[in-house]
Computed example of a mutant assay.
Amino acid sequence: MSDYCGGCRYDPKQRVGDHACPYTAGYWSFLARNETEFSGNHRMRQPMQGLHRLTDLDALVDQEKARGSIAP
Results as ranks from 00 to 15, higher is better:
Leu54Asp: 10
Met48Gly: 02
His42Asn: 14
Phe30Trp: 11
Leu54Lys: 14
Arg43Ile: 09
Leu51Phe: 10
Ser29Gly: 13
Phe30Ala: 08
Phe30Tyr: 14
Gly40Leu: 03
Leu54Tyr: 11
Glu37Lys: 09
Ser39Gly: 04
Arg53Phe: 08
Ala32Phe: 06
Ser39Glu: 13
Ser39Cys: 07
Leu57Ser: 06
Leu31Gly: 05
Ser39Phe: 01
Tyr27Cys: 01
Arg45Tyr: 04
Met48Tyr: 03
Tyr27Met: 04
Met48Cys: 08
Leu31Ile: 06
Leu31Gln: 05
Gly50Gln: 10
Glu37Trp: 03
Pro47Lys: 02
Gln46Gly: 05
Arg53Ser: 15
Trp28Ile: 00
Trp28Cys: 00
Asp56Glu: 15
Gln49Val: 12
Pro47Val: 01
Leu54Met: 13
Asn34Trp: 11
Met48Asn: 03
Ala32Gln: 12
Asn34Arg: 15
Tyr27Arg: 04
Arg53Leu: 13
Asn41Ile: 15
Pro47Leu: 03
Phe38Asn: 03
Thr36Met: 02
Gly40Gln: 06
His42Leu: 14
Thr36Ser: 07
Ala32Asn: 14
Gly50Lys: 04
Pro47Asn: 06
Asp58Gly: 06
Met44Ile: 00
Leu57Arg: 10
Leu54Ile: 06
Leu51Tyr: 13
Asp58Cys: 01
Gly40Thr: 04
Met48Phe: 06
Thr55Tyr: 06
Arg33His: 09
Arg43Pro: 03
Glu37Asn: 08
Ala32Arg: 13
Gly50Ser: 07
Gln46Phe: 10
Phe38His: 01
Ala32Ser: 14
Thr55Asn: 15
Thr36Ile: 01
Arg53Val: 08
Met48Val: 05
Asp56Ile: 09
His42Asp: 14
Tyr27Asp: 00
Glu37Leu: 08
Ala32Lys: 09
Leu57Trp: 04
Asp58Phe: 02
Leu51Thr: 10
Pro47Ala: 05
Arg53Tyr: 09
Gly50Met: 04
Arg33Gly: 05
Asp56Cys: 14
His52Ile: 05
Gly50Glu: 12
Arg33Cys: 12
